[in-house]
Design a protein around this nucleic acid. Structure first.
Lengths: 192, 192
DNA sequence: AATATTAACTAACAATCGTTAGTTTTACAT
DNA sequence: ATGTAAAACTAACGATTGTTAGTTAATATT
């Protein structure tokens, strides 16, 4: 049943993600969501099992993309510098493709029910892959001798916030953004 | 009535901030908060006017500290490089002093009522001060010719996420953290 | 000791929450 | 045209929400 037209379920989840970004999961009611979809609240349950399932749908798919992506990057036969650039590029692409979902992933994951453990495992795995790339970079003297955790969370902090301002700068081309971010994050903002 | 012992109102707001970080403003009920304070829900209203007032109390004070601080930094008679380091240091200090409040400020500001405009004004002012420092840095060739907005939001992205991992790395000394962050954010992570 | 104030309590309110049941409409295959 | 399945609807449920009213216990002031 693959097609270019969206399933009603997909439409519900996409609309939900947009509302979740605006007000957070807990503040979005099924009646809010239904109104935005153009339907009564009860009708949503012809397509989804629960509010929580929507959140699962929104979050877990993205989390899987991120973790699978960085695993591929880590295992690829490339230099550390390229890996880091690839990680940045992946963040830009996945965020630009789904900025609303990224908001839920960042802010509403704690409201996941049965899927929470899976999400947390994916996040841990993601961070671990990232850490290993950084370790390798330090071992090869490609990266400075700065605390690994500082490098990790500093970089990740910027990348995890992309969802907040990518939508506001829609004019900025992805490739330009990726280049600027690589320069900023890897080489710094100060002149030599 | 200044003293080292906390007002009950302060105790409520501090407890609330901690819960807000865990579950978000909307998901924290007055009964949750009351239980954590060790009191019945109705008793909270002897000290606060509404749930919303608590959020105001938590957020607006911090926002004022940030904006006043960066204004001072911008207007001070210092070099741009020092200003940037001061901004980073301010973020570390204010976040370490109140990581829970920072979570609310980042994630729950949209639930402010009457105080929302004030918050948004403070945030805009903050970003504008930051932008001006960056502009000056570029004009003086202290900063590279990278898109101002990329520099601004990249740096701010990292700093705004400090609340997430400062509590997890309580052992890391503030001065060490500030140094590492300055190096990472300003000079980058790659070796020359 | 008597009084006034602060802050706790119980009980309940109207509103809203996610969700279910039962019914009617829509759309498509025969 | 007819039958079937998908998806909409109305109505309502029990639970929970923020908050108020009224009362009692504790604390401070005179």
């Amino acid at each position: 049943m693959k097609s270019t037209t969206l399933t009603r379920k997909q439409e519900i989840c996409i609309t939900a993600a947009r509302l979740f970004k605006q007000k957070g999961y807990s503040a979005v009611t099924m009646r809010d969501l239904a109104a935005e979809v153009g339907v009564k609240a009860a009708s949503l349950y012809n397509h989804i099992a629960s509010k929580e399932e929507i959140l699962n749908e929104v979050i877990v798919n993205i989390a899987e993309s991120f973790t699978e992506g960085i695993q591929d990057i880590r295992l690829a036969d490339t230099k550390v510098a390229e890996k880091l650039e690839a990680v940045i590029a992946q963040h830009v692409h996945l965020t630009a493709d789904n900025p609303y979902g990224m908001a839920s992933l960042n802010n509403d994951w704690m409201h996941l029910g049965e899927g929470k453990e899976k999400y947390l495992a994916l996040r841990s795995a993601y961070e671990q892959h990232f850490r290993e790339i950084i370790k390798k970079g330090k071992a090869q003297n490609v990266l400075k001798d700065i605390d690994e955790e500082v490098i990790l969370f500093s970089t990740l902090g910027t990348l995890r916030n992309l969802y907040l301002w990518i939508p506001k700068k829609a004019d900025l081309q992805r490739s330009k953004l990726i280049d600027s971010l690589c320069e900023t994050l890897l080489n710094g903002v100060k002149t030599a």
